[in-house]
Design a protein around this nucleic acid. Sequence first.
DNA 1: GCGGCTATATATAAGCT
DNA 2: TAGCTTATATATAGCCG
Lengths: 139, 139
Amino acid sequence: MGRGKIEIKRIENSSNRQVTYSKRKNGILKKAKEISVLCDAQVSLILFGASGKMHEYISPSTTLIDVLDRYQRASGKTLWDAKHENLSNEIDRIKKENDSMQIELRHLKGEDITSLNYKELMNLEEALENGLTGQDFGG
Amino acid sequence: MGRGKIEIKRIENSSNRQVTYSKRKNGILKKAKEISVLCDAQVSLILFGASGKMHEYISPSTTLIDVLDRYQRASGKTLWDAKHENLSNEIDRIKKENDSMQIELRHLKGEDITSLNYKELMNLEEALENGLTGQDFGG
DNA sequence: GCGGCTATATATAAGCT
DNA sequence: TAGCTTATATATAGCCG
């Protein structure tokens, strides 16, 4: 669509790439508006250029959240549930690490530290590195 | 872009609307792929036609969730509900505690433990309870 | 690097089957 | 109804200031 035909592959020249992005971004945003108006379609378009700048188009009379809800129902994929699960799992993982450390710290602080011998310290260190939970080092 | 010029307004004839949707859907999906490849852009495009059928394009090497996370950061808008925010906050909180403990443990393990005196232990304990991060207890 | 300017490449509205 | 075709409308690559 220009003076010359181009291959669809990454434009190596960064300044040409930027110019092309800017032009095509306008083009695709326009197309998104058009299809949404002409065909009564619900559209969500989000673009991030290499420079990091964001552009978006969401059809009128809807919201991105509506689109995403519908996306989940139509695709069977989960977004917030997946997100929710990821977060929950991360919390579990971190909490375990956390508990483990707290237990070890309690031991460290609760004992007469000078009474720990070398072997006990090694056990402790190993336990910490393994992130074991609930293991008791005798107190 | 055809035999005749058209106005950008809802196509009333439902079968024309469907045909136009189908054609333009292909066009915009192609455009989305092209800009993503040519310009190294991160793109998310979700379309629902009036018939309810969904089509999507997400740039390779990313996921819709990534795009949405980035969208939230860039736009300042929240997509996930309050529940997710709470989880995120909890993660932040726990991670801080965690980091704090790791720092202290590193100190404990890195030192000759018998050299810690009572006061140092008290400082340590206080720091842990306050969840302070990055504070140095002298090594 | 940015905003116009064309020549060309593409997309697509109508038609046709 | 769904494709295929073709004349036109658009998009845009390469340039220029």
